[in-house]
Design a protein around this nucleic acid. Structure first.
Lengths: 350, 350
DNA sequence: TTGTAAGCGTTATCAA
DNA sequence: TTGATAACGCTTACAA
């Protein structure tokens, strides 16, 4: 079988007996040629099985690809499984969707982010980076390419648009509420401070050198209020790891009366850990989360947590991305408010 | 300011004093030149701010872009908010991630799928279609481009790889279980049969002409067992719509003793609707779902549902996509098993 | 080990 | 309204 070479603009052009430019115009600038000719071109094209300009060639010529890239510090699949992240992406997607751009999710991980080669190859006109460590190679790669960038949460980079939240203040608020209820012995469960897969207790030194700004701030916020207290780091923000971490913290004696978690996912695990030990929330142990993901209010008991406007965060990032695409300047960082949502997982210690 | 034209292979080549091909080799085939020369080239490149071959130009020359496209019948943001879909995408993403391909999510909606123009422009080597109506223009567009395609759930198309599940059998199983418990009066809550945004009661004619195979099969499965019973269609698979639909069905008299839902999301809404009316699940009304999303077992009460292996579905689709990418043949459809998971939302009628 | 030359399939500018 | 012609930036035989 003689492989039937795919028709191109040229093929169609010579079939119709016009120039390539004219065929191009038939697709891109209908007003540049007579309706009759255009009709004829389109008909012949259809007949030949030509589906219109090749997207890659077009992108090469126009130098843009109508796509928004997205890079994150975890596995690609986290985009769909982490509740907080997926709400952010929901917001981002709805913005991008409305403007008919594709959303390009980049794979891979190298010290907390896609590999630089991946970034160098990704077909996108702008990228949004989600909570990458300050030193992620992916960041350098994106900059080097000169890709406009919007950064969610971190890091702070010159010439990038930014959307962020007051993690420090939120954490402080949460810890303060607990202290005012009378709690004095705390345990803190956090997700990764460093992209090294470590799980376990956290030293002050490890905390201070952490490249994940968000984690660092939430932790600092907690500790600023409650003083030096045991901290357990989980490699990822997952229920399972939170459960294990909380169990470790709860095995200390005297036992902490309150658990401060860096995310709702971890808090859900902590809730489970308390039950595992035959204890009750909040009678024996108070648990507080961070994010206010949709599941927080349906947890058992409903989770007290620090709310950040996740959908809005994604939406804003999307708007900024589109603006950069149009040649706009990054402008001042967008700072979204946080607030404490009191539910039933917290109470005064007995 | 004189806009500093971005350096290209050519620029670098002449700066180093070699040919363009050699610079290209320095990046793509390190073994084709001496280490020393390569070193020199890379150094000069770095110095000039050249970040390596432009991805679009490279794609044009090689005719592939290391990206897997994904198209679905709902808004882009559903990818992150629909529990069943996001688990499927989780599986797909983890496969794609491991092979260092980008995942390109296509936006837009036109009769249940991205607009054909969008598909024509998307930069991907293969596309995965998720539960698109048989007549979605997006499908034709993808075919026309000659993009290899893997179809999840539907439609059945020649020359495409396929992953599917026995929706009909699963629904039948669920309905049978309820009948055997003694239920005789049912209500059925379904998501869209047609991509027209309609919500309300469903006629037999509307059911039979439905272009959404999955919906049709689940419904047929239910009705085959329970006979002609009232069906309420929701425009989307959402808790809110499920709640409203269930409320309608429950207002009939005599009241149905069991609600058959086409998805867990709808079932969660139905659970709520039963409570809204001051009734109890399962004492007054039994509720059954479909999918077995993670939240099903944590629902109140834990939801009886038809399990389909969602993660596996995505993972298989990913593997098929990668195989097609390597020039493989579509092969036989992959059919994944379903099973009934009995939890606490079903019981014998009083 | 390096270079030459012919693509890859478009868009865009400007003249006819 | 249409057509030359020159980009766009790269890969890859094949020849040197």
């Amino acid at each position: 079988m003689d492989r039937p070479r795919k028709p191109t603009l040229d093929t169609v052009a010579s079939a119709v007996g016009v120039s390539r430019a004219t065929v191009s115009n038939a697709y891109n600038r209908p007003d540049q040629l007579s309706a009759a000719l255009r009709e004829r071109i389109l008909a012949t094209a259809a007949e030949m099985g030509y589906t219109g300009p090749d997207p890659v060639a077009r992108s090469l010529a126009t130098r843009h690809s109508a796509a928004v890239g997205f890079m994150l510090g975890q596995q690609l699949s986290t985009s769909f499984s982490d509740p907080a992240l997926s709400v952010v992406l929901d917001g981002l997607a709805s913005t991008v969707d409305g403007h008919d751009h594709c959303l390009v999710l980049m794979p891979g991980r190298d010290r907390g982010g896609p590999r630089p080669e991946t970034v160098a190859r990704a077909q996108a006109d702008v990228v949004v980076a989600y909570s990458l460590p300050d030193d992620a190679p992916a960041l350098a790669a994106a900059r080097a390419r000169g890709l406009p960038m919007v950064v969610i949460d971190q890091p702070v980079l010159p010439d990038t648009a930014r959307v962020e939240v007051d993690d420090l203040g939120g954490a402080r608020m949460a810890a303060t509420a607990l202290r005012e209820l009378g709690h004095r012995r705390f345990g803190v469960v956090t997700f990764a401070l460093h992209p090294d897969g470590h799980s376990g207790p956290v030293s002050a030194e490890r905390l201070e050198s952490a490249p994940f700004r968000v984690t660092r701030d939430r932790l600092r916020g907690y500790l600023a209020v409650v003083g030096a207290q045991p901290v357990w780091e989980c490699a990822r923000s997952s229920r399972e790891l939170g459960r294990a971490g909380a169990r470790e913290l709860l095995s200390a004696s005297p036992r902490p009366t309150a658990l401060l978690c860096a995310s709702d996912e971890l808090a859900f695990g902590a809730l489970q850990a308390v039950r595992d030990l035959g204890l009750r929330v909040p009678a024996d142990v108070s648990v507080i989360g961070f994010d206010d993901v949709p599941a927080a209010e349906h947890a058992d008991p409903p989770l007290t947590t620090v709310r950040q406007p996740l959908t809005e965060k994604g939406r804003r990032a999307g708007e900024l991305a589109l603006r950069l695409l149009d040649g706009g300047r990054p402008g001042e960082p967008t700072r979204l408010p946080v607030s404490l949502v009191l539910r039933d997982s917290t109470a005064a210690p007995e």
